[in-house]
Every structure is written in C-alpha cells, then in structure tokens.
Design a protein around this nucleic acid. Structure first.
Lengths: 169, 169
DNA sequence: TTGGAGTGTCAACAACACTGACTTAAACTG
DNA sequence: CAGTTTAAGTCAGTGTTGTTGACACTCCAA
C-alpha cells in the first residue's frame, strides 16, 4: 500500500487502520451503544414497554402514515415480531392504524396524542445525551462520526437512512 | 435548510446541535450498529452461539486471565446471565477457568486454542467492516468518530474503555 | 469466629427475535 | 372473470439473552 490522501508523512498515513485501532473502534461502538440506549431503557423499564416499542414509536413519529411493510423494512425484523409490538401499542392507544385510501390492503400508522407524548419523552432523553456528546466533541468530530457510521451501514440500511434524512432536510 | 457545514460565521456555529441533526445522529447510530453486529451474527448463527458468547470471547481474549467479576463489570450484565454463557463456553472447551493463586475465590478466564480460533474468526469479520468504513472515511473522520463515541458513554463505561485501550497502547 | 465478598447454581420469568403455516382481503394480470 | 400476488394479521413453537430471587460454598479479614 502506498501513501494516501491526507497525511503528509509517508509511513504514518495508514496508522489509523492497524488492528489495534480497529479493535478500539469496535470497543468504542460497544460501550457507546450501551450509553446510547441507556436513557430510553430506563424510562421504558417503568412501563410495560421495551426497546422494540421505542423503535416502532420513533420511526412512526418520524414517518407518519407509513405502512406496516415500510416499517418492517426499516426495522429489519419479521412481521410477527413487529406485529406483537404494534398490537400492544394500538391496544394501549399510542398508535392508530388506518386502512389505506388508495390501496385498502395497506394500513397507515400514526401516533396518537398519547403516542406522540411518549415519543417526545423518549426522544428528549436520547437527544439530551446526543446533544451533550456532540457539544463536547465539536462540529468537526460530529461530521467525522456521521461519515464513519454511514460507511459502516449495510447498503440497504444506508438507503433507509438517506431516505429518512432527506425527508426532513 | 441550507447546508453550510464548515462556515466560521457566528450564527451558524451551533447548527450541528439542532434537533434534526441530533435525530439524524440517533438514526445513524441505530443503522450503523446493525451493520456493526451483522457479520459476527451471521457466523454465530450457524453455531449454537449468539452475541453474548461473542462479547464474552472478545473480552476474555482482550484481557486474558481476567476474573469473572471484572468481566461482569465490562459487559454490564448480571452474573447469572454471564454464567449461562460461560458455562457453555467452558463445556465446549473454548474457555478455561482457573482458580486464582492469590485469591482462590476468583476464577481466571482464558481462551483455549479453539476459543482463540473462534475469537479470531469473529474478530476478523468485524474488523473487516470497520477497516472498510475507516478507510472510506479517512483518518480525520475516524478521530471524530472516536471522540463522539467516547463522549456518548456513561462514565463507568468510559473507564472500562480507557483501561482496555491503555492496556495495549 | 463471625461477617462479608466472590463465585456458582437453581428456578422462574420476560422481552424480543426467529421459522413455518395459515387466513383474509384487496389488487393486479392474463 | 379466474388465478396469482401482495399486505396484513394470526397461531404455534423455539431460541437467545436478559432479569429476580433464593441459596450454598469458599475464603479472607476484622
């Protein structure tokens, strides 16, 4: 391998790709993800809900009127697994499911007022940590953070991510 | 919204802390973590093992001779949960548990040859993705990635992370 | 020698994922 | 129109990983 883009010194250009650096990146992901989910988990523990409910509520709030199938693709779980979660959320009045106008086979999902409240509560907790981390790290680090995470995604997930990102930009 | 990332002007200095930017960061973490675990998960699916076995094998390989209690703190699970995993790994000859010399209550954990082989297999798969992501993103982005992840950890996890990092640097 | 720490085990349970098989209803297609 | 496909929901069974709670054992130290 020869010298690459940014680093001026020759021998050090690829030092960030050593196995040790990669291993530290792996461990950083592991520990950071624990922090990432810790606050919502604490809130959900008091209710009869778990992480799966959080994810469903998050993405329904993010893409109101989304279909079950679309949600299935975003979450990457089976229909049975999502259905279990959705059933309780609908029964508890946090999510409402409406038959599609154009295609009556589809169900369009929306948060109720109560669902939106829960989403806000969870979202606020998770955003607070993210905001603190972003502020401590600074804008350049945040840009790098996002670049690496995008490069780490499977291509299908990258598509889902980009679609959501563009929908509100 | 106009994207003016690296602008030095005053009013835009905190644009990276908007709720929308934070939400994108949250979603990036979600999708990237799926990619992060996808390759080892595929390998483990064929065996009778799961993600918990991967984590145990990883950290035992990283800190040979570690005690059960130390591993407990790193992994952040209950001892019953870890014990179930360790029991199968020991029974299958991937991990060996030795009574401590100084303190005979403690058990010191090490990978056997077979355990080390599995660790390598999983580690190689996960490192390959991380290497590809790091290379695509470049050294500056990687530095930012690590900075943000560290800021996102709980302080106890940050300590565990730092201890592991320093042990081989 | 008593108390506490470290370890291990048993049992029960919950959350969340999976596969496989099936139904219902609607939409598309030849 | 008949047949096929698609979207959604359901039932039953299973596996991994996590949790509590209770209990036993060993060893160390006050």
């Amino acid at each position: 391998m020869d010298r690459r883009t940014s680093s001026p010194t020759s021998g050090e250009a690829l030092l960030f790709l050593t196995d040790e650096q990669l291993r530290q990146g792996i461990e950083a992901m592991f520990f950071a993800y624990r922090g990432f989910t810790a606050d919502p988990d604490r809130i959900l523990a008091d209710m009869a809900y778990g992480r799966a409910h959080h994810r469903a509520v998050h993405f329904i709030g993010r893409a109101p009127g989304t279909t079950v199938n679309n949600l299935l693709n975003i979450l990457g779980v089976t229909k049975q697994s999502l259905n279990r979660v959705l059933r309780t959320l609908i029964a508890d009045g946090l999510v409402e499911s409406k038959v599609g106008r154009a295609d009556k086979r589809e169900r369009h999902l929306n948060l109720t007022l109560a669902g939106s409240t829960l989403e806000q509560t969870l979202s606020n907790a998770q955003r607070a940590r993210m905001r603190s981390a972003f502020r401590d790290a600074g804008p350049d680090a945040v840009a790098g953070f996002r670049t690496v995470l995008e490069a780490m995604m499977d291509s299908e997930m990258r598509n889902s991510y980009a679609r959501l990102k563009d929908s509100t930009s």
